[in-house]
Design a binder for these strands. Structure first.
Ligand code: FES
Ligand code: FES
Lengths: 132, 132
DNA sequence: ATAAACCATACCAATTTTGTATGATTTATA
DNA sequence: TATAAATCATACAAAATTGGTATGGTTTAT
């Protein structure tokens, strides 16, 4: 039905691993433990840092650490961080794109219902639910 | 977050139009009213027929008609019909593909939670909710 | 100073999605 | 029964997205 992107999947694996560790974890450590390439791990971690889901320490002996408690981190937050905050419908992507099918589209509002329902559902699942 | 495919979006527009009509609607009529190309409408209608969401009458004077009451047709049904019944996670696509990251993956079961939540949410929205 | 790490960006390859084209089959009707 | 109106089946190319990698720059402990 809705396919979770590989990247989002990977990120859940990484975050699950991080929720076990108290100390910092570097890209190479994470890559080794998860069998992902360093480049891929690095790409994902950058997105998670931007979304303030993990915090980073630069320089030697640096690494990443969860910035949020697993029970306060929702699946929706994670997926949004990785795949972007694109709306559910193509029509409401941005205000610029006119709706071709229905003028002054009331349809768009209806589709927001779908989007809202999905968002809500994913908001109610925490990383802790996924990991424990 | 989750992007509704254009095809699924189109299909909701088409089904909304059909829920207004008592009589049969042909591909060309639907195309004209929705501003979609006939080929695209035809492609979508075939999928909806296969999913038994609409019924079709072949031959001259033929066309399509809703096979289900709008209040009994869920967004999940529609999206599944158009985009396929792919699972939410890449890992659980089919039994054949081994999980590379975590052996004997318990993770897959966790990800089913996400899938289940989304499915459930979309099951609770009917075409009538979207159209009315 | 050096090495270990994160950061930023750009890029190509692979996959998926969109959209169209072509021909075959069915059936109402003149 | 011939014709036209319509669905059905399949195949395919173009476009968009996603997955994954490479390169070079910046920060910081030792
Ligand atoms: S085109 Fe899909 S809502 Fe307007
Ligand atoms: S690789 Fe994603 S659950 Fe195993």
């Amino acid at each position: 039905m809705f396919k979770l992107s590989k990247m989002a999947d990977y990120s859940i694996v990484l975050l699950s691993r991080m929720s076990k560790a108290e100390d910092l974890l570097s890209t190479s450590e994470l890559a080794e433990e998860t069998q992902l390439s360093e480049a891929t791990v690095a790409k994902i971690m950058r997105l998670l840092v931007k979304a303030e889901i993990v915090s980073s320490i630069r320089g030697a002996q640096g690494g990443y650490r969860l910035a949020v408690l697993p029970e306060n981190l929702s699946a929706g937050d994670i997926i949004t961080a990785i795949d972007g905050p694109k709306a559910l419908t193509a029509c409401t992507d941005d205000g610029a794109g006119e709706c071709i099918l229905i003028k002054n589209s009331a349809m768009a509002m209806r589709l927001q219902k779908i989007n809202g329902a999905v968002k809500n559902a994913l908001h109610n699942i925490s990383l802790k639910d996924l990991y424990v």
